[in-house]
Design a protein around this nucleic acid. Structure first.
Lengths: 378, 378
DNA sequence: TCCACTTTGGCAACGCTGTTGCGAAACTGC
DNA sequence: GCAGTTTCGCAACAGCGTTGCCAAAGTGGA
């Protein structure tokens, strides 16, 4: 029987290793959330519910692995002044790759999620696997040079549909030639790095989780209006992908029964209606449609927040946000609406976080932790 | 610092107690799933990923607490024949209460979920808190007599909106006088039992989870067409309630932009369209509308299954199932559609499961386990 | 009939987890 | 200067699942 049951059964039993990794990731996540201000051991104990002694042990391991460091003291509140612990961002890096229909963006981020180097170049996603992989490999090589420490892997975000678990693409909208291509394994072989593949909207949503746009158990919807319309869903603090990474097909929600036909085969999809409005230059109507879809989503899932992004939307961000807010204010119970704070880098940042998320215990629900080397069992 | 951190922080650290309770609940859940056929220790070990020795210890605790028992042997497969372990259903019971607009149903179930006694009586949900609570108390008293063992608590299901965590009702549709009523605490005081309150659709969905309509980490949507239209969502094996128990407002998904007005204030809600079709006797159209909404939901959430229920729907179950299946077959990627196997008892059975779920580790995600007395730490 | 083999499952020792008990360090406030 | 508070580590501890080992009880071949 395997000592660590990470890949085994549907509902896994937990052993001491899993317990330890869970708590380690939790503390590491809190340290990242604390940012440059850091956090004291006592604070970490209060937030995790663990005893101070347990936190001391865990942070000692993290310090030994080089992931955390003491950083001075804070003012006393009547007793011994707390020692500040901080994440060491340079301890490791991750690469994010955003494959869009006409552009390739590659970034290098450190453990805190800060971008160290970012490169964007034009790309024809339909140019064939070899060409695209060559371009990705070249760009990643450029960016890699900036990493002074361990490179944990590369996260790749692209339009779906695809299978996140296996890293195999399906019939990527507009580029049927990718159907069945094992992108994860192909790229992992080229780069010599672990690779994670996900839909662009899911990656974006994950990146926004790690930017703490909502609390640790909160939920939100990220709506992405670019050349298409999609959504990334975060429910209970974790990205909801569904069984086949199919969740988030927001663009083909039918909003107008028996409405105009959509290339997907349905009629009255929100994407067709919305893109039509955009093409007519009627941003107010596009925003109203987006808001109506968002209100449906809010009512169905009771999310805490709606975040907006995507190239088309960001060109008139204020107008869209206002329009969506108007609809949601009437019927959505006052759920807040905001534009992604990461702008047009939302997706590529999220792609890099695909690699980092497991270190901080922000994997999909129930998903166990992938511990950092040196923090796991001897 | 509390030794057991069950109620504390947003993202809880796990200690040995939590670990033990988690694994205990997991094994107990597998025993329940195994039903009268039972399961051997070796099977449980394989399914949980725990070592056989750990399973032996856990099942020994469960047997000592009276929750499990040995039940003969199975045929050998080439070695020592396995000893069958079975859940002891009579070890404890739970009460389920379904408060509908015009009827009250109360049931008593054992640990396996089997109904021991069920009573239905007419009720006017608008008759005032005292009258309704009197009726519930009287019916529960009748049913309690059939419980020969420990009664764990009562689960109450009723139309929303309400707050599951606090057990406080909001503006229950059609009965505004309930707004702000602390149903859980009021009823707990009357019955002298722990009480859990939830929306009828969520309770139904939970009950269907425990009936193993999907796998342990699967997801489905339960669509309930009665006097209104709502949904219960199960994502990743757990009921998704949202931050304010507001999730599942399927009835007020806008399906026809600028369509006919709905009492909720919107236009073109699926509930209005669907109930209109029902009133006209046009079941095919009602089913097509339901199917369109279901297809939206399937696309958004990538669920594995759509289950149908509710009084109105069950009167023409085959017609609705067929109509929904037709729409989903075209555009839903072939997601299976079925009618709830529990029929008109779906909700009341689920209400009882609200109490039992925590024993089997089927709480909301991340939610820790509420161990059975005697299985927890000495 | 015997023996090798497989499978199930328990006993005892073990390693590792977080916890508890206790004390040192370092600051505030009287 | 002393009491009180807060932070945090060392050492001993209880309890978790794991490992090593063995007994029990069947199958199947010689």
């Amino acid at each position: 029987m395997a000592p660590v049951n990470r890949t085994s059964p549907a509902t896994p039993g937990a052993n001491l290793t899993a317990l330890r990794d869970h708590n380690t990731a939790l503390v590491l996540g809190l340290l990242r959330d604390a940012g440059p201000e850091g956090a004291s051991r006592a604070e970490l104990a209060a937030r995790t519910g663990l005893t101070p002694q347990a936190v001391s042990k865990i942070t000692a391991r993290l310090r030994a692995a080089g992931l955390a460091a003491e950083a001075g003291r804070r003012a006393s509140t009547g007793g011994k002044p707390p020692t500040v612990l901080r994440l060491v961002p340079d301890a490791a890096h991750a690469v994010g790759v955003h494959l869009d229909r006409d552009a390739l963006t590659v970034t290098l981020v450190d453990l805190s999620g800060a971008e160290t180097a970012t490169r964007t170049s034009p790309l024809d996603l339909g140019a064939g696997a070899e060409t695209v992989l060559d371009a990705v490999t070249a760009e990643v090589a450029q960016v890699r040079a900036a990493a002074g420490s361990a490179l944990l892997g590369a996260g790749v975000a692209l339009p779906g549909p695809l299978d996140h678990r296996t890293g195999v693409l399906h019939r990527v909208t507009g580029f049927p030639q990718w159907d069945g291509f094992p992108l994860r394994d192909a790229l992992a072989g080229r780069l010599g790095l672990p690779v994670v593949v996900d839909k662009d909207t899911n990656a974006a949503a994950l990146g926004l989780v790690l930017r703490r746009c909502v609390g640790p158990a909160g939920s939100f919807a990220y709506l992405h209006l670019g050349t298409g319309l999609g959504a990334g869903l975060v429910l209970g603090g974790a990205v909801h992908r569904g069984a086949r990474t199919g969740a988030g097909e927001f663009g083909h929600q039918v909003l107008l029964l028996d409405g105009p036909p959509c290339p997907c085969g349905n009629r009255g999809c929100i994407e067709v209606l919305c893109l039509d409005a955009v093409a007519r230059g009627d941003i107010a109507e596009a925003a109203r449609l987006l808001g109506t879809g968002a209100a449906n989503l809010v009512r169905l899932l009771d999310v805490d927040l709606v975040l907006l992004g995507g190239g088309t939307l960001l060109r008139d961000a204020a107008a869209y946000a206002g329009g969506v807010r108007d609809v949601l204010g009437d019927t959505g119970g006052g759920v807040p609406v905001a534009v992604t704070p990461a702008g047009d880098r939302t997706v590529v940042e999220g792609a890099a976080e695909l690699v980092l998320a497991s270190l901080f215990g922000r994997e999909s629900r129930g998903g166990l932790t992938h511990p950092f080397p040196g923090t796991s069992r001897p």
